[in-house]
Design a protein around this nucleic acid. Sequence first.
DNA 1: TATCATTTTGAGACAGTTTATCAATTTCAA
DNA 2: TTGAAATTGATAAACTGTCTCAAAATGATA
Lengths: 144, 144
Amino acid sequence: MAQTHVKEMQALKEHLGKHQLKLTRQRELILNAFLRQEHITAEAMYHQLAKSDPHLGLATIYRTLNLFCDAGLAQARHFGSQTKYDNVSHKGHHDHLICTGCEKIVEFENEEIERLQEEVAARNGFAIKTHRLELYGLCSRCRH
Amino acid sequence: MAQTHVKEMQALKEHLGKHQLKLTRQRELILNAFLRQEHITAEAMYHQLAKSDPHLGLATIYRTLNLFCDAGLAQARHFGSQTKYDNVSHKGHHDHLICTGCEKIVEFENEEIERLQEEVAARNGFAIKTHRLELYGLCSRCRH
DNA sequence: TATCATTTTGAGACAGTTTATCAATTTCAA
DNA sequence: TTGAAATTGATAAACTGTCTCAAAATGATA
């Protein structure tokens, strides 16, 4: 298990070293669980890990997921009232097509759009860290 | 004041009429205040209006801003832990560049991106009604 | 204009999510 | 092995947003 995420563990260790932080059993545990997901909430991870480690605190999950964000391994997204932590290494970034009829969500990627975003950002002096693109409409079925 | 936003007031009245809702002093007041902004949080509006109307409740602000969303006058956007209500009528559609350092918001429009969005949607059988694009990063000042 | 069923309001209680607190424990450099 | 510093778990607290409900306002109707 641990050895399947060598690269990310390495990145975490590097971040910890740079900031006088320590590698703990919990951080390893949470990292491995996190890397198996595409995106997850702190609460969901809390319940998931409770099976194997009932004494792992929710606060620790939050602290650790935020640490992963600082380390560049995760990316927080505010979705409704909850925060989802995206696994950055899992796959390339993807955006969402959301049907307002049936709530179906289709993921997509478009390099050209990404490139134009960078262009817009650069023109305004911004360095993009993350972005969010959601297209709302009706899917073919809901439109008949 | 009121007469400067005839079109939006008309749209609100239409929505109210369709849904057996009533036009109240508070709804007028909040609409006029809201239309002067480009985007605002419920909390900020609460403090802003407290000066002229100290008894206006926060719950009423939330209820009314959500009403504006239903009426198509506003659009809710989750930023950080707060919800910002965008003034849809303020200008044509625009997207946002958001500085995660100082929270500055720069608006932009890019026809090419919009066109590509339509393309992606069509490819997936979707008919886009609205969309949301937010680029998060650091502005030139926060990046030093 | 007066009536009155219905909607809305204000104030605060409440709920859900995330952060802060702090004593006890763990880490890791020396 | 030691000990200063960081981390943890448990829970309190903070924060945002919604719900409740008695009192007030609205507006259709007479």
